[in-house]
């Protein structure tokens, strides 16, 4: 976990750096509070980095070991594409395509994938659009 914790420290440092940079572009009268909270985060991050650096290595508890990375990236990619597609094809059409492709990619049978994707999308449309009157994202189809 030591490596992972060091990585966390550097990510937090980058976040602090980003916010300091953004603060420098604010008018002077508005910077006091953002500087205060960012500095609190910076101090805590530095304490974290120092204590982690002084800790002994323990490889066993690495939270990023033994993951199904391909599967995870596949889900992130299809989910991102789905959000892009919504504005083009509309919520219902893109949901059918998204659920179908994800289920298929996760090795669910073709028949079950088709049934679930169409059944789920119809349920969502009826429940949200017709019964609860919650607006769905629009596109060129539905």
């Amino acid at each position: 976990m030591k490596k992972v914790d060091m990585l966390l420290g550097f990510i937090l440092l980058a976040i602090c750096g980003f916010f300091y940079f953004m603060i420098s572009r604010l008018p002077e009268k508005a910077i006091l509070y953002p500087i205060f909270v960012t500095t609190v985060l910076l101090i805590l991050t530095l304490i974290h980095l120092i204590t982690t650096y002084l800790k002994k290595e323990d490889e066993e508890s690495n939270a990023f070991k033994g993951l199904e990375i391909k599967q995870l990236l596949f889900v992130i990619a299809t989910s991102g594409l789905y959000v892009v597609l919504i504005n083009i094809a509309g919520y219902v059409t893109s949901t059918v395509l998204y659920v179908l492709s994800t289920l298929f990619g996760l090795k669910v049978s073709k028949k079950a994938s088709a049934l679930i994707s169409i059944g789920f999308s119809i349920c969502i449309y009826v429940l949200f659009k017709i019964l609860l009157k919650v607006p769905l994202p629009k596109g060129f189809i539905i």
């Binding site: 919504i86 994800t102 289920l103």
Partner: peptide, 17 residues
């Protein structure tokens, strides 16, 4: 495998609504 796309599709509606 079924929960993954369904929860994400619901998350999209939820955050849009």
């Amino acid at each position: 495998a079924v929960l993954i796309p369904i929860i994400f599709a619901l998350s999209v509606i939820g955050s849009y609504a």
